[in-house]
Write a protein that binds this DNA or RNA. Structure first.
Lengths: 204, 204
DNA sequence: AACCTCCTTCTACGGATGTAGTATGGCTTT
DNA sequence: AAAGCCATACTACATCCGTAGAAGGAGGTT
């Protein structure tokens, strides 16, 4: 694996575990078992390191977006064939993907939210937003296919709500009420919420 | 104002502007125009400073929750009098409050999300979650009053979605699509989304 | 074989950071 | 008025961080 990839992957893990504050040239070296100074040589400044980190997350995410193939590439194939039954099925599928974000992909999800927050005071990090826009576009297409009245408005709103559901479980805010990630209960609860949202945003 | 309050307020501003990484004893002194070493004297360790910071946010938030008086204290007064019309009115009110989070209260909102993320690797910060639980309880009561089928499940889900909407606009993720905070368009867009959510989660 | 180039490793240093310890000044108590 | 106490102000120090530069070495070119 490319040395650049090794470094940025270790950086993602560090940010997930310790927050942005834990992201240090030396810490990355240690985490990736690289000789001291390596990260500093590959990314001379901290800003460069962060940008590479964010870029890597964006790359992973857009790869996922393609692979997962939420029925958006089905949009040309199934124009208005999305009825309530298909919506329910879709809710279950998306719930499974989200549960994956919380378990297998927890590290990356955590790092992504840290990066999003970082982008607030660091405008050139808006690269990540490309991923966000892609998923928003996909949501628009989906809602349009399901016959939503104003998909351009509903798409981003839907994505924002889904992200909220994800963040809530990610940080364990609903620890008292929500089931732990990775369990069937969690997937069922998420699926129920998604079903509600999908029906609401498609007016069905 | 108490010296403790001066310090924690300056700390909140710093976290909002520079992220957790910008939170430094010396930086707080400078930001609050206090003599060097003051913050270090009041909060000997960085952990103590962060905990005080988080506690202050939680205090502000719970004060807001009481003051705003989302019609939850109307719950005993209006048992099941929440029809579609009242829900729409409520959506407009909540949209106004959220717009306030994004403009006047942007600093605190930003700091809160940073703190939530920090709580992930720093479990004793779960103090903030008390605020979250209070708003979740309020949402449960509200949805129950509006005749939701399973308020205990829908309440947290609703709050999570609202937080998602808020976060989305906070970081400007939907910059391409969403109207800027502080504008009437933003409030209208938020109100529309909230109306959709309220109806969905109350099955109306 | 000599040379050059790029990847890698190591070291140096100015500055910031966390934390503790010491001095100072005013206010209270006796 | 003397003594004691506490909030405040300042200083010290070991560590860590960002960044730059130099040393070393493998591999390919002429």
């Amino acid at each position: 694996m490319s040395r650049y990839a090794v470094i940025t992957d270790a950086a993602i893990e560090l940010v997930a575990e310790l927050g942005m504050r834990g992201l240090t040239h030396r810490a990355v070296d240690a985490r990736a078992s690289l000789p001291p100074g390596t990260t500093s040589a590959y990314y001379r400044t901290r800003k460069a390191l962060i940008e590479a980190l964010v870029q890597r997350i964006a790359d992973f995410d857009s790869a996922d977006l393609e692979r997962n193939a939420l029925p958006a590439d089905a949009t040309p194939a199934l124009p208005a064939a999305l009825g309530p039954a298909e919506l329910d099925q879709l809710a279950v599928q998306v719930a499974a993907v989200m549960d994956g974000w919380l378990t297998t992909g927890r590290t990356r999800t955590l790092a992504r939210y840290a990066a999003l927050l970082e982008a607030t005071h660091h405008p050139e990090l808006r690269t990540i937003l490309a991923y966000g826009n892609a998923s928003r576009a996909q949501a628009c297409a989906l809602l349009a296919a399901a016959g939503a009245e104003d998909p351009e408005q509903a798409g981003p709103q839907f994505v924002a709500c889904v992200d909220g559901l994800l963040f809530d479980r990610l940080i364990g805010a609903g620890a008292l009420t929500a089931p732990p990630p990775g369990t069937a209960e969690n997937r069922a609860d998420l699926a129920a919420a998604l079903r509600t949202l999908l029906r609401a945003f498609t007016s069905k």
